[in-house]
Design a protein around this nucleic acid. Sequence first.
RNA 1: GCGCCCGUAGCUCAGGGGAUAGAGCAUCUGCCUUCUAAGCAGAGGGUCGCAGGUUCAAAUCCUGCCGGGCGCGCCA
Length: 558
Amino acid sequence: MTKDRMIKEMVLRAWQRASDDGKIRSKPDPDKVLVEIPKETVPADYATTVAMVLAPIEGRPPREIAQTIQSYLQGDPQAILEHVELAGPGYLNVTLKPDQWRQVLLDIDAQGKRFGQVKIGCGRRVQVEFVSANPTGPLHVGHGRWAAVGNALANLLCAAGYEVHREYYNNDSGRQVKLLGQSVYARYQQRAGNPVTDPEDGYRGAYVTELAQQLMDRVGDVYRAKKAEECLDFFTRTALDEMTALIRKDLEAFGITFDSWFSEASLFESGAVQKALDDLRKKNYLYEKDGALWFRSTQFSDDKDRVVRKEDGEFTYLASDIAYHQDKLSRGFDLLINIWGADHHGYMARMEAVVLALGYPKEKLRILIGQLVTLVRNGQPVPMSKRAGEFVTLRDVVSEVGKDAAIFFFLTRRLDSHLEFDLELAKRQSNENPVYYVQYAHARLCSVLRQAEEQGIGLKDASQIRLDRLTEPEELKLMKRLDAFPKLIEESAHALEPHRLTFYLLELAGILHHYYHKHRIISDDSDLTQARLLLVNSVRTVMANALGILGVSAPERM
RNA sequence: GCGCCCGUAGCUCAGGGGAUAGAGCAUCUGCCUUCUAAGCAGAGGGUCGCAGGUUCAAAUCCUGCCGGGCGCGCCA
C-alpha cells in the first residue's frame, strides 16, 4: 500500500473514533479525506485538508476540527508517525518516522532495473502510432518532438505494465508521393541536360536534387528524354524507398525504432480500403453526392460530412485512414494512441467518427494533440516550408546538439504547450542544457561507486547495512523522492504525460548535487560509508531507470 | 466568423482546486590541495493577460473580453 493511502486510512480511523466519542458529528467519508504531498516549503511529508472540508458541514472552525482529529491521529496504534501538526487555516501536516523511508533502499536494491515498474496496465495491449510523417522529405525538427514524446510515452506505458506496440504509418500513396516522383524526375532531366521544368507545387529542397543525383549515379542517364508517363512510376518508387530509408535512419540516429512500419499503399493493394468502405456502406454511413462518395461523419458529431472518394474517382486520405484504423482496431489492441501535431487537430472529430462507425467504442482511440515547434535562431523565427525545402532537419539538430539533449529538451514541455526551439541556444548552450545536469549527477555517482571499488570497499548485502545511519535531512529528502518514483510512473502513465519524468529527474539531480557537496560519501566510518553507498547507488538506479524511459542515455563518465 | 491550444519572473517554461506561486537561462556575489566545478551556496526579479462568477479555498474550474499559435479543402 502506498504511504498516502496509509495516511488516509489512519485519518479515517481517527475520524471514526472521534465520531464514536461524539466529537465529530459526521460519519467518516473517504471522499472527504484528501491526502496530498505539500509543497516544498512545508516541513511535512503529507497533508490533509479534511478539517477544512468538514468545517462548513460541522459548522465549526476548521482549526478546531483539525485539533480533534490530530489528537485521535496521534493515538493511532500503527505508530508510524513522527508527528502531526496543525498549520495554516486548518491543515493537518503529517511527518512519518524516518525508518518508514529507509525501506525504499531495500526495494531498489532488490528490484534494480525493475524498480518503478507498476502493474496498472495489467498487460493490456496499447498501440502508439507516432511521427508518421509523409515520406516526401526528411524529418524536420518538429517531427523530433513527436518522436521523442511517442517513444517516451511507449516506454512509460511499458513500465506501467502495458504491452506496447510502436507503429509508423507511412503515407506512401497518393498525390503528394506522386509529386515527389515528378520533382525528382524533373531534377534528373535537368541534370541530364534536358530542360524539364519543376512541377508546380513540387518539392524543391536540396534533397530532391540529391535523390536525382543518386539515381543518376546508379542508372546513368538511361531515362534521359524519356517522357514522364513512361518512367514516373520508377522515379516515384525509387524516391519513396530512398526517403523512407532515410527517415528510418534519422529516427535510428535519434534512438527510436518502431515495431512495425505500416504502408498506406498496402491498404489499397490488399483491398482493405474497398472492404472498409463496403462495411461502412452496409451500415449506411456512406452516400453519393455531386459525383463524390461521402462519409456521414456528422452522425457522430463531426461538423460536416467528409469525402472519401473524389469526383475524379481518386480516394482521399480519409479512405485509407478508415481502412488503417479498421486494421489497427481489428488487431485486438485495448487502446490506440495517435500522436498528432496541432496542424491536424481538425481531423480528430472525423477519426473519432470513424471508430464509432466501424462499431468500436470511442474510448478505443486516444488522439494526443501536440502544439507545434517554433524554430528560432537568435530570437528570430526561422521559416519552414517543406515544399520550398527551407527547413532544419532532425538529422542536423541531432548532429549539432546530440540526441540526448534534443530528446530531453523536447520532453521538458507539456504536450499542449508551444515549444520554442532556438538553434543557436541549443548549440551554444549544449553544455548547459538541463540534460547534462541530470546525466552529470548519474556519472558523478558512478564515479563515486568506482572510487569505492578501487579502495576495496565492497558493498555489503543490503540487509546487513545500518540504514539507521542515514539521518541527514538531505538523505531523508533523497529517500523520499526515490520512494515517489513508482507512484510517478503510475500517474504519468495514467495521464499519458512523459514530461513529468523530466521534471522529476531535474529535481532528484538537484537534491543529489546538494547532498554531494555537503556530505562525503566515502569516509573512515565504515557503517556510514556502506549506508551512503547504498543510498547513492539507489539514486543512480532510479536515475538510470527514468532516463531509460525518456530514451536518454545514462553515461557512467562525462 | 467558427473550433482547438496557449497567455505565470527580463527570456524559455513547470505547477492545472489548497498554505508565503517554482525551475532553468540571463544579471550580481562567493566556493576547486578533499569521492567529477557539465557542480554548489547566496541575491535581486511577479497585478499568474483583463473582468466577472462558482467554492471554506481559484494561477488552477465556469462565462465574457483582449493577445498569440494552429485548424476550418473533393490537399496530406
